[in-house]
Design a protein around this nucleic acid. Structure first.
Lengths: 195, 195
DNA sequence: CTTCTGCCTGACCGATCGGTCAGGGTCTGA
DNA sequence: TCAGACCCTGACCGATCGGTCAGGCAGAAG
């Protein structure tokens, strides 16, 4: 019989995810996590340098996908940017529901931590894309409402299957974004140079 | 010359609102508030029974308006409920931007506090009304996205004037709610009795 | 056997939290 | 002048936080 290697590292990670979703990052103590795993607090800090490192490792996959989405948005404008942003973010939000639930509401403060310094910029670009790169207040507001609302919905509707949730959110997003006049699909003229 | 009565109570309230919006309820200590006012922590606790009482007094006006909205929704169905809910909530959210920013993200935990026990039910009813009392997942999801997104937007766009923000949000809400089949406006027949 | 290494722990640290308390200063009205 | 109400404070409390540290234990290697 294969000796069951105790994957303490993974267990801590899973327990932390569970606790964070219920009581938030700041509302969860290392003691709470240790209790859930069934080990001592010192063990948690043996496997992770500190509390922040634990969070960072928990968020790494989601952040990777977010960066990929950010790359895909480069160069897109108008309705195309809106569609890619909507589709990409809805997909991301649904897939990483739990991670989003972890950050729920603590975004502003958590983003201050060095491990997440760049996330703010990425999410700003995402919001800008969802607004079709328009600077009209209506478009910017709609984009923010959607991003925040979709995050919240994913954290809340834990019981709805991925596919159904994704479809509903995408339908809503397409209905809700403020339509922008797509730049002419003509090949760029001399006036279209980036300034 | 009229002796300037020091309105310490009010000053504490204002300082708390300012700090809470920046660092959140849990992220703000009584010491922080006292420092901002320029008094001792004990003074804060002389004017308010405890930290929770401070929050409750800060939220009282907004909660009052929320209850009024809740009353106005009684008996409304379909599109009428959606419109009243959208209009009422957008107005409330814009007027009480700062209060909403205070609760930002800490809603789930704060609602557990006895002073806010009933808020959860009211906001559930509000969400239900915004969904046109439909039980279709799409309608329920859209309602949640809107409520959460609008709250976030109000907290975020502090620089946009009330009127502009209200208009933009209401336009968005009307565009984004899932349309429901309004019950026939005919006078009730024998089949329309509430069951 | 000894030694070494990886995993884990209890005890402990300083800092900070919300909250209490006895007492001091000031104003007012008798 | 004195009593009492009101406002405010420093000192202090127990609890909890994230984090450190010396050492115990088990198994593999020599």
């Amino acid at each position: 019989m294969v000796r069951a290697v105790p994957d303490t590292h993974g267990e801590i990670l899973a327990a932390a995810a569970r606790r964070f979703t219920v009581t938030g990052y700041r509302g969860t103590s290392l003691q709470d996590i240790a209790r859930e795993v069934g080990c001592s607090k010192a063990t948690v800090l043996y496997h992770f340098a500190n509390k922040e490192a634990l969070l960072a490792e928990l968020m790494a996959p989601a952040i990777g996908v977010l960066r990929d989405l950010d790359d895909k948005l480069i160069g897109l404008t108008g309705a195309a940017a809106q569609e890619v942003a909507a589709q990409g973010f809805v997909d991301l939000a649904v897939r990483f529901r739990q991670e989003i639930a972890v950050l729920r509401g603590e975004f502003p403060e958590l983003l201050c931590q060095p491990a997440f310094a760049h996330i703010q910029q990425i999410s700003d670009r995402l919001r800008d894309a969802l607004a079709g790169h328009s600077d009209r207040p209506g478009a910017r507001i709609a984009a923010l409402v959607l991003l925040a609302g979709i995050s919240e919905a994913c954290a809340e509707f834990a019981d709805i299957p991925d596919d159904a949730l994704r479809l509903a959110l995408l339908t809503l997003a397409r209905r809700a974004v403020e339509p922008v006049e797509t730049p002419l699909p003509h090949p760029p003229t001399t006036e279209d140079k980036d300034s």
